[in-house]
Nucleic acid binder design. Structure first.
Length: 672
DNA sequence: AACGTCGTAAACACCA
DNA sequence: TTGGTGTTTACGACGT
């Protein structure tokens, strides 16, 4: 699936505005994609054109690289289409481990085959990567040089600015790409096992552009555009969000803020062992009954069994050593990434006139930054649009904004059944969260951190008529979220279950069949009346789409908590305004400007129309005439109908309907 | 510990 | 008979 996403973006979908797909667009804006050489090559290329042409070349290389890796993976149903070549499943497993688990792969191939093929594949990929990055680096230097000259001669500053932007993004993206590939390979736990077979030890793969170089370049380019292409998240199923590294999640080695892997590794090992010694019931490599050794998913019922497994399967040998080195690299990359993201966060907060965050997360042992400490952070530490950090050790990547990587977390092998936790949906209004990360969710197979009810409601409100058939709801899910393009039976069942279960969803029959609408008041009501502080709540542990055992699924609380618990009165006006701005339209808002394609934007557009005190009385949603023939009301408490209209949410406050109804609004729950 | 929420699974009924 | 739709119950995980 990730590959599918990648190929989509490679093809430069019109809507693609981030990740890989952003480059073509940006380059297009800088002068047209393929026409550069042909239309302007009558004479000699001027420096700017040369630059652009080089960019195109680089881009093309990136495309080819990804396409090569995506070979045979364009179909989303790869798992069903067994390819005759063994390389295909291997590739699938490498790129989208959730589609073919290591176990499945092992079933297909014998261990020997598996090993050989993996190594072969990785050797090829690494070589490609290395060559590619080297070339990129050379090109970048060339471009940099030429740009410095161009800068003096070029009169069209704006044009150059655009090119610089594209160039910078290309640069960043290249590094991102590199990191992603590194991580992808590393997480396989099989990279660089034996250098003798042509496999390049991962640690020998020099960064095409070192972080310092990158920073330097960025400075030199003096760009205002803040790395829109930069990965917003580190792609790790095991989890951290780069902006909010959470504690439990963080690998022990995150203790080291320095990018020197050695220290990290040492600390990591020390930490691990000491931790294990002190607390025999837990182990960094053991969780949820499984071995968390990279690439290992062995089930271990208890610690004893795990220790036994650890000693037998992961003893000190070449393989384990290599995997250790790989993990070291992973940590190193993460630390670099973390440093950058933290810096950015700092800058963001400073820019937003917020209280500077506490000492850099990595300046202290991250595992001490518990959810509790996060909880203590003032609400303004989590401005709208910034989901709270996941607190679980299996937190998913969390897109912070639209520029998130298109490479999904699912593209990485998970140490076990995918058990991801999702940040709470209520910390960020679904509309704004979706709006910001629309492309991310669309392309990355990451489960959206919203409840089904929220999503269903969003889907329905997303349409001009505020009503959808079940099938249309399905379509919305699949259209908006890559995650829901698989495992359809499960989530469709959940959708139906939610539709039936929640009173806020009203089924309306019409001639053609039935449509579902949202009873906004009911939706508001269903929010639990009492909320405490904005704690970082572990949200659902998601069972993998491939149908592994359910673990938990919850998308708890919170913007509401955030506001009510910590006192939304303390929020400054602008923040409240921002919250209001990003809220959903209310029930009675007339349909405005809904773009059927990606109607998320429509939500914001509806802000001005939200509010008439519902002349609807809870059970009579505003319906289009053609649909108001029959309404099947679910078990309808009398209080709803008798509730005074004056208590219905009004515009100002209830512009925050989405999951963050303020406490003052809850009295409706207390009505006799 | 009790309770509520949420996601998942599953059984069942109805209907085209 | 089959598949889609809708309802309901049960269960586990998690937070309050």
């Amino acid at each position: 699936m990730m590959v599918e996403s990648a190929s989509e973006t490679i093809r430069s979908t019109p809507t693609s505005q981030n990740g890989v797909g952003s480059l073509p667009n940006q380059l297009d804006s800088a002068g047209g994609r393929d026409g550069v050489a042909s239309s302007e090559t009558n004479g000699e290329l001027n420096p700017a054109e040369l630059l652009h042409f080089q960019q195109q070349q680089a881009l093309q290389m990136a495309r080819q690289l990804l396409l090569q890796q995506a070979t045979g993976l364009s179909s989303p149903n790869n798992t069903e289409n067994k390819q005759p070549s063994v390389q295909v499943p291997v590739s699938v497993a490498m790129m989208s481990p959730q589609m073919i688990t290591p176990q499945q792969m092992q079933q297909i191939l014998s261990p020997a085959q598996l090993q050989a093929v993996l190594q072969q594949q990785q050797a090829i990929m690494l070589q490609q990567l290395q060559e590619y990055y080297k070339k990129q680096q050379e090109q970048l230097h060339l471009q940099l040089l030429s740009q410095q000259h161009i800068g003096k001669q070029q009169s069209k500053e704006s044009s150059l600015g655009n090119k610089q932007l594209a160039f910078q993004q290309q640069l960043i993206q290249m590094q991102q790409l590199q990191q992603q590939h590194l991580l992808n390979l590393q997480r396989q736990g099989l990279v660089g096992l034996q250098s003798g077979q042509g496999t390049l030890p991962i640690q020998n793969l020099p960064p095409a552009v070192s972080p310092s170089d990158l920073q330097q370049l960025l400075k030199e380019m003096s760009n205002s555009q803040e790395d829109s292409n930069k990965p917003d998240t580190v792609d790790l199923t095991t989890s951290i969000t780069t902006s909010f590294p959470s504690a439990k999640v963080s690998p022990p080695s995150m203790l080291s803020s320095l990018p020197n892997g050695q220290n990290a590794m040492q600390i990591s090992r020390r930490e691990s062992s000491s931790h294990y010694d002190i607390c025999p019931s837990s182990h960094p490599l053991y969780g949820h009954g499984e071995c968390r050794w990279p690439g290992c998913e062995a089930l271990c019922e208890d610690m004893g069994q795990f220790v036994k497994h650890l000693n037998t399967e992961h003893a000190l040998d070449d393989r384990s050593t290599a995997q250790c080195r790989v993990q070291m690299q992973v940590v190193q990359q993460l630390e670099i990434q973390l440093a950058k993201e933290s810096e950015r966060l700092q800058a963001m907060m400073t820019h937003l006139h917020m209280r500077p965050s506490e000492p850099k997360p990595f300046s202290q042992p991250l595992n001490l930054v518990s959810s509790a400490s996060i909880t203590k952070m003032s609400p303004d530490t989590f401005p709208d649009g910034l989901p709270q950090p996941p607190t679980s050790a299996t937190a998913p990547i969390t897109p912070l904004r639209q520029g998130a990587s298109v490479i999904s977390s699912s593209s990485l092998p998970s140490p076990g059944p995918v058990r991801r936790r999702i940040v709470d949906k209520f910390c960020t209004p679904i509309s704004s969260e979706l709006a910001q990360n629309h492309e991310f969710y669309k392309n990355a197979e990451v489960r959206p951190p919203f409840t089904y009810a929220s999503l269903i409601r969003q889907a329905i409100l997303d349409t001009p008529d505020r009503q959808l058939t079940l099938n249309e709801i399905y379509n919305w899910f699949t259209r908006m979220f890559a995650y829901f393009r698989r495992n359809t039976a499960t989530w469709k069942n959940a959708v139906r279950h939610n539709l039936s279960l929640h009173k806020c969803f009203v089924r309306v029959e019409n001639v053609k069949g039935a449509v579902w609408t949202v009873d906004e008041l009911e939706y508001q009501k269903r929010r639990p009346p009492k909320m405490t502080g904005c704690t970082s709540v572990n949200s659902p542990t998601i069972s993998p789409p491939d149908g592994n055992k359910v673990h938990d699924t919850r998308s708890p609380t919170l913007v509401k908590n955030m506001i009510s618990g910590l006192g939304y009165g303390a929020l400054n006006a602008s923040y409240q305004a921002a919250l209001a701005e990003s809220s959903f339209p209310l029930l009675n808002s007339p349909p405005l400007l809904h773009s059927s394609g990606s109607g998320i934007q429509g939500c914001h557009d509806d802000v001005t129309s939200t509010g008439e005190p519902g002349n609807s009385n809870g059970s009579s949603p505003r319906l289009s005439p053609q649909y108001s023939q029959s309404i099947h009301v679910k078990e309808e408490p009398a209080e709803e109908d008798t509730r005074p209209a004056s208590l219905t949410p009004t515009n100002e406050n209830t512009n925050l309907p989405e999951d963050r109804d303020l406490e003052p609004e809850t009295p409706m729950e207390d009505l006799p």
